[in-house]
């Protein structure tokens, strides 16, 4: 064992805790301060509630956007297919008219 290590062991030997240490610990145990203050629980409850509210708000917003997008898409599908049906019907009518008038009236290639 070298001299430094000897010196360290001497210097760092355990010391007695100050007088009344144990009593101090026991006193703190039974004092209200030793128990978690109600406001700590309240804070956690508040944080949890706010987080849940935020989650609900985000979900609601997402659902609202999805609904708006869905309604828009629905309107577009209705419009697009209506236009398609009208054009085809118009074409069918013209083809029928042309066929009834004879080949000179128009030049349908084929009919649906």
């Amino acid at each position: 064992m070298n001299r430094l290590e000897e010196a360290l062991r001497d210097a760092l030997r355990r010391e007695e805790a100050p007088g009344g240490f144990t009593e101090g610990v026991l006193a703190r145990l039974s004092s209200p301060a030793a128990r978690p203050a109600p406001w700590v629980w309240l804070r956690w409850a508040l944080v949890t509630t706010l987080s849940l509210l935020l989650l609900v708000a985000v979900q609601y917003n997402t659902e609202r956007r999805r609904r708006a997008e869905g309604e828009r898409a629905k309107a577009q599908v209705l419009t697009a297919l209506r236009i398609t049906a009208e054009k085809l019907e118009y074409t069918r009518e013209k083809t029928t008219r042309a066929t009834s008038r004879g080949p000179a009236a128009g030049r349908p290639v084929n009919t649906i």
């Binding site: 118009y90 128009g106 030049r107 349908p108 290639v109």
Partner: peptide, 15 residues
């Protein structure tokens, strides 16, 4: 393939 081609005055429809 083109299945319908109807042309009249100022109107031309192809399907």
């Amino acid at each position: 393939s083109k299945i319908v081609d109807v042309a009249e005055k100022n109107e031309h429809t192809e399907v």
